[in-house]
Design a protein around this nucleic acid. Sequence first.
DNA 1: TGGGGTTTTTTCGCATTCGAATAAAAAGAC
DNA 2: GTCTTTTTATTCGAATGCGAAAAAACCCCA
Lengths: 377, 377
Amino acid sequence: MRKNPIFQRETLGAAVLQVRSGRSTSRTTLARALGISPSTTGLYVDQLIADKYLNESGLNQGPMGRPRRILTTQADAGWFAGVEFNAQRIQAVGVDFSGGLKMSVELILPAEVLADQVIKSILSCVARLAATMEGPLLSVGLGVPGLVDAQAGVGLSYAFIPDWQQVPVVEKIGSTLNVPVILQNNLRAIALAERWFGRGHELNDYVILGPRSGFGIAMVQEGRLIEGARHAAGEVGRWPWQPSEGAESSQELHHALSAPATWRRLAGLGPRAKLPEDLRAGLAEVAGKEGAEWDAVCTDFARVVGCLQLILDTGVFILHGPLTVLGERFCHAITETACVQMPALRGTGLKVVPSTLGDNAGALGAASLAMEAWSPA
Amino acid sequence: MRKNPIFQRETLGAAVLQVRSGRSTSRTTLARALGISPSTTGLYVDQLIADKYLNESGLNQGPMGRPRRILTTQADAGWFAGVEFNAQRIQAVGVDFSGGLKMSVELILPAEVLADQVIKSILSCVARLAATMEGPLLSVGLGVPGLVDAQAGVGLSYAFIPDWQQVPVVEKIGSTLNVPVILQNNLRAIALAERWFGRGHELNDYVILGPRSGFGIAMVQEGRLIEGARHAAGEVGRWPWQPSEGAESSQELHHALSAPATWRRLAGLGPRAKLPEDLRAGLAEVAGKEGAEWDAVCTDFARVVGCLQLILDTGVFILHGPLTVLGERFCHAITETACVQMPALRGTGLKVVPSTLGDNAGALGAASLAMEAWSPA
DNA sequence: TGGGGTTTTTTCGCATTCGAATAAAAAGAC
DNA sequence: GTCTTTTTATTCGAATGCGAAAAAACCCCA
């Protein structure tokens, strides 16, 4: 072996990612995935094993030939924090080095919370995780609502926290915790969660549908998030929109298709009807409905999805947020309606599916950010 | 100097691209752009100069310090062919090694042409170019209509040439010419043309609007073309659409906004009105119009552009095709109307501009493909 | 039980690439 | 003019990463 080889941090990080994701389980497959030679890969793996980031866990016999020496990540090598918030609450998760979800924390924010308070609360959430998680904290991912400059590490704006303007989040959090902090818009973080914890496993192209208080989407093309020149890609909610039922005055899409609006429409209530305590529960009640309201809502969703499919050609749309309680039936209805209404969609493999991740998808996505950004010291 | 260094072809190619585009003009800037060390860059440049691909053309004195030794591409090192076609005609251009347009050729195809005939005609166009261009042909780029699998080098389908199905174009052309052949959808090729020959110079994010016989778009995000999982991204023309004037039955977008449809609407004629011999001339006549028809057309375009801006957040939309004769005024009207009708667009930097490239944009784009793909033997 | 076949892993020499220092080239200060 | 400052280019030793070949590990089949 070489005496004191100095390795490229990025390559070490990429190797760990490959192993953690399960895409590469042996030195040879890892070499192919990373695009470096088998000999070099061997050295890198040796180093990572020596540093207790990876270990060998048995053999994997292929149909023939020498069996692969299975590489796995060492779960106790440290942990990642993933934090997501909006104006109501903070959600945080602790994930071990193998990518296993170990702990989950929620914190309700007071009404009319301000930016500084949010930052403090985030730190206290991470501290709560740290009390239980074993090993050192390796990095923190943050899913931030509103406009985010991921590269600069700055939260640009968010409608529901008035002074959330140009907040240097990475600096504020990072200087306290002394670990790398990675920022991303929370919906785009969810897209990463889907890749690590959900259905996006084998997918390189998909769209996250995020109808919540508004309606945003996150797009993944060839494995990369689409951010937009000004970090504002995916603002479908602001499309002009005329709901398919009744020729009301035209408005913006989120007035018709946000989670609350969808509930009101499905429940047959007016646009000012009071929301139930628990929106998910309310939605669950109307999930089995049929009739004109149901059809109208499906038609509207189908129109959005169809239009997106025609532009982006991604094929898979993953529904997130409260509306997932409407279940497969809802998603299936959208897919069907879209193909009926827009013949051009036939044969495009269009498919809408509900996410299998729960309410903490955003936090999981943030943890994914942390994992993807980490590389050994 | 080292005796016989073996260089990476890709890196050599990337270096030439940098120099040709004018983004890197000296060894040091080139080193930064390529992400390799200055010393290695020096060796690469020496090699490229020795092989007559680059040369040094004088000095460039910065505000201080040793002046840069300006690197330029050797125009006569060879040439690239760019070919684009549709069911009506083939356009081909010859571009020298410095990216200068040297020659242009057009060939009208007979009605109801078949795939084999097209391939033959493409070869004859290239032969015509070869007769005049100096130096060896280095590679050929092809802008193909319809669905294209760029990686596989196969034309998948095209509505207006019946037997254009699964045509292994790269194989057919490449085996005859014995140079690399690169395929791409013709509208996406135009996006590259814009980068090399037009307004896309400094842009990393933009959208090409291509209203012709249909309505397609090509998208560039962070310098990369968006292809879609099934090579079908950008099919905006198949959006369901209700033109803003008159509540006609709803139809698809290209029925309202293709180049012919736009002319008919601007000229105040019905959807079956006979087209003029020369559509561009016809459009030029109505370019100065005002009134309800003009406003309606602008509103429709504004709706499309606005929706696209909200999803993609690219900022710049470049109008291509016959409608460019409507000029700045048309584009400006679209921009204005969009911002008025969709308040969310304020501050997004939305801008629609007509392309400065002419009718051979597609062929130029194909030549760009050829240039981008080339690397020394 | 031993040999051929197949795939993974490691060994080992070589050379491409890097880093740091050095040289080169010019502007501006004095 | 000479010296400092600044930026670019080159030199040169060191070492990271590669390729080819060897070794290892396992299957199958006589």
